[in-house]
Simulated scan of single mutants.
Amino acid sequence: MRYLLFTLFCLMFGAAQAAPGKAYLSIIIDDLGQSSERDSRTLALPGPVTMAIMPDTPHATDFARQAHKAGRTVILHMPMDPANGPYAWHPGTAIEELARRLDAALAKVPYAAGINNHMGSRMTAQREPMRWLMEELQRRHLFFVDSRTSAATVAAAEAQAVGLAHVSRDVFLDDVRTTEAISGQLQLGIAQARKQGSAVLIGHPYPQTLEVLAREIPRLKAQGIELIGLPQMIAERGNQAMPAHGHQGRYSNR
């Protein structure tokens, strides 16, 4: 309940309170829970980096507890079609089964403050289950991050329609797994943050990604960039779509 009240306060007053000229960045690392070594390296990154943990991984529950104890925001990295596995959502699945899989996934990732989609290019284009999901997350006082794995996603639009606290991803850091390419994507995120006031970046616990972030995060402040956690980013954006995702704050896939 305290998180819900905080989120509501942020959505009402956060954008109005933001200092002019500020440039904010949030970073999410997906696919955690698979490797203790990579999980530990991710947790060692400086600043409020969000930990997105997959439920069908051997270390999901233990790492969620570890990350929460370390003061990091934990989110459930929810498998969605074309992802497979016991928790994955697929088009045409009955809502009752989707609810069972969501319950089971959240049980595997304790302390989750919200969820984002793992894959999901087909599932996030399904309006009815996305609307159900956003209403269910609202009921549970959880937020949503649209990873935007497809331009056809309606997930963020449905979150906005029901007033659910949410943000959408702006930049993927590591589609190309070289330090040069990842550094370039980070600079793209910084440029977007300067242009539109904020940017949400998603990466993975690849050695190259972790190397770049460990080196570059401490340099952000000197570049005029403030790294913030997802709850604050939700506050800053106030549930508004960024220009690349819609028009005048409304998502285009309505």
Rank of each mutant, 00 (worst) to 15 (best):
I225A: 13
G47D: 07
R215G: 05
T50H: 08
T153E: 15
A16E: 14
G224H: 06
Q192L: 10
L98Q: 02
G14N: 07
A199W: 04
G203C: 02
I95N: 08
G224N: 12
I234V: 09
T57S: 01
L188P: 01
Q232L: 08
E236P: 05
P79Q: 05
A67I: 00
P82L: 07
E136R: 11
I228F: 15
R148K: 13
L8F: 12
Q196K: 09
R101N: 11
V145T: 12
Q248T: 11
H90R: 06
S36Y: 08
P218H: 02
R2Y: 15
I202L: 00
S36T: 15
R131S: 04
L142S: 02
L43F: 05
G203K: 02
L164D: 06
I115T: 06
V167D: 03
G92V: 06
R72T: 07
G163V: 14
Q196V: 03
T149I: 07
H118C: 02
D31P: 04
G114D: 09
P205D: 10
W132H: 12
A15W: 09
W89P: 03
Q66N: 10
L201Y: 08
A18C: 14
R148L: 05
T178Y: 03
L142I: 09
G21T: 12
V200R: 12
L213D: 12
G184I: 12
F63V: 01
W89T: 02
E211I: 07
A152P: 01
I53E: 02
A165H: 09
V154T: 08
H141I: 06
H77Y: 01
R140E: 12
M123Q: 08
D62Y: 15
A193G: 14
T153W: 05
T179E: 05
E226F: 11
G85V: 14
E236G: 14
H247N: 12
Q208E: 12
D30W: 00
R65H: 13
K22V: 15
